[in-house]
Design a protein around this nucleic acid. Structure first.
Length: 196
DNA sequence: CCCTGATTCGC
DNA sequence: GCGAATCAGG
């Protein structure tokens, strides 16, 4: 595979979106993340992230430095021509405040809230808020891009174009990332006040 | 161990 | 220019 214009474009796009090199590599196919990173550097679009601290300190072997007894008034260690750090895509109000994981449609006809249920389901508002927030940082992977350790929480409508999986790293052998685990499993709680 | 990006250097 | 190997973290 070679870096055709299209491939480079996709690379730029995804990189700008904050996708990781490995994800971009998978998407492109035929290249490794190293190739992607290499290309990114060659293209000159490397450092992302607003407050990137370029001062990495390179203690390489440099017994002799460029003998340039010139210029030393203003080193200017802060060269950041990056005015817009986050494009922020589009502002989606909140079409689906509750994704509901393994899809549990309301079995209840209507009218009743749904309190008389053994599976007391009251997800803390915190957890929900966390999920909403995490969705912004989600990797938005496609079905094929999911791995054993990427969050498999679905977002959006599968029948729509904007359907994707969270993709953030799973917390620990679980199928979801931390935030989504929070709302996915929580059956054994809530009714803590047994014996009453 | 999983993952990141950064750099080097032979091709 | 390319990218595997390597490095340096999280």
């Amino acid at each position: 595979m070679s870096w055709t214009d299209e491939r480079v474009e996709l690379l730029k796009k995804m990189w700008a979106e904050g996708q990781s090199a490995s994800q971009i590599a998978k998407e492109l196919g035929g290249v490794t993340r190293n190739a992607v990173i290499g290309k990114v550097h060659r293209l000159g679009l490397s450092n992302r992230t607003t407050g990137a601290a370029p001062v990495k300190a390179e203690a390489k072997e440099k017994p002799i430095e460029t003998p340039k007894p010139e210029v030393a008034a203003k080193p200017k260690p802060e060269p950041r021509p990056e005015p817009a750090p986050r494009p922020a895509a589009e502002a989606k109000p909140a079409a689906e405040p509750r994704p509901m994981p393994p899809a549990r449609k309301q079995i209840i006809p209507a009218g009743q809230p749904l309190p008389p249920q053994p599976s007391a389901n009251e997800i803390s508002p915190e957890a929900l808020a966390k999920v909403s927030e995490v969705e912004k940082k989600a990797k938005k992977l496609t079905l094929m891009e999911l791995t054993e350790r990427t969050c498999k929480w679905p977002v959006g409508d599968p029948a729509t174009d904007d359907f994707w999986f969270c993709g953030l790293p799973t917390q620990a052998g679980k199928p979801y990332c931390e935030a989504h685990v929070g709302v996915a499993f929580q059956p054994m709680s809530t009714r803590r006040d047994r014996r009453r």
